[in-house]
């Protein structure tokens, strides 16, 4: 369990627990809380560890194996720690024909990540290539954490990265 602290600290205490409990009346089943609960974990911890999957499973009344099966289905949940700033760049065809692959290359080079999917040695950035971000008219869109940035060109990359120390 890479990056896991020796003693697991539960996520669902205090305010985070209250946020989860506020969701209960919105759904007729407890299981429907799974995706929202996983989002709460990722917001609090940056990623979803095995320990967190166990905790979520227990909270919702599922098995940890089931929770893992769901977590790994979705691309936005991280099962490993990632850089402080997680960058998603679209390279699907509509962006691809407008230079997205060059933008992705520039991001990998200028962050020092070395490769798509890798984290820079200083832990500042992780860059991954993703499929259509639903903003194809504004090629190339990228997500830096929760910040959606449109019309990124190779020329703009260094200025954008400088905003994320």
């Amino acid at each position: 369990m890479s990056g896991e602290t020796a003693v697991y600290e539960p996520v669902f205490t205090g305010a985070v627990l209250a946020q989860l409990e506020a969701l209960y009346p919105k759904y007729p089943t407890k299981q429907a809380l799974l995706l929202p609960a996983l989002w709460l974990v990722q917001e609090a911890r940056g990623w979803i560890s095995d320990g967190a999957m166990h905790e979520v499973a227990e909270k919702i009344g599922l098995t940890a194996a089931y929770v893992r099966g769901v977590v790994t289905f979705y691309t936005m949940y991280h099962t490993h720690p990632v850089g402080r700033h997680f960058i998603q760049v679209c390279t699907t065809s509509p962006c691809g024909i407008c230079g997205a692959e060059d933008v992705a290359r520039a991001l990998v080079e200028q962050t020092g990540c070395g490769d798509l999917g890798s984290t820079s040695p200083d832990g500042r950035f992780t860059v991954i290539e993703v499929e259509c971000l639903g903003a194809c008219g504004f090629a190339t869109p990228i997500l830096v954490g929760d910040d959606f940035i449109e019309s990124v060109t190779v020329e703009r990359v260094s200025e954008i990265l400088a905003r994320y120390p």
Binding site: K26, L33, L34, L35, W39, V70, F73, Y74, Y77, V130
Partner: peptide, 28 residues
């Protein structure tokens, strides 16, 4: 009531029955 539910990255969840599975806390 309107409840906003966030997906988590999966094109297939736009297919209507996959969307329902995802909302129910399953793989899409």
């Amino acid at each position: 009531d309107v409840v906003i539910h966030r997906g988590a990255g999966a094109y297939i969840c736009g297919e209507e029955t996959a969307l329902m599975n995802s909302l129910e806390g399953r793989r899409g």
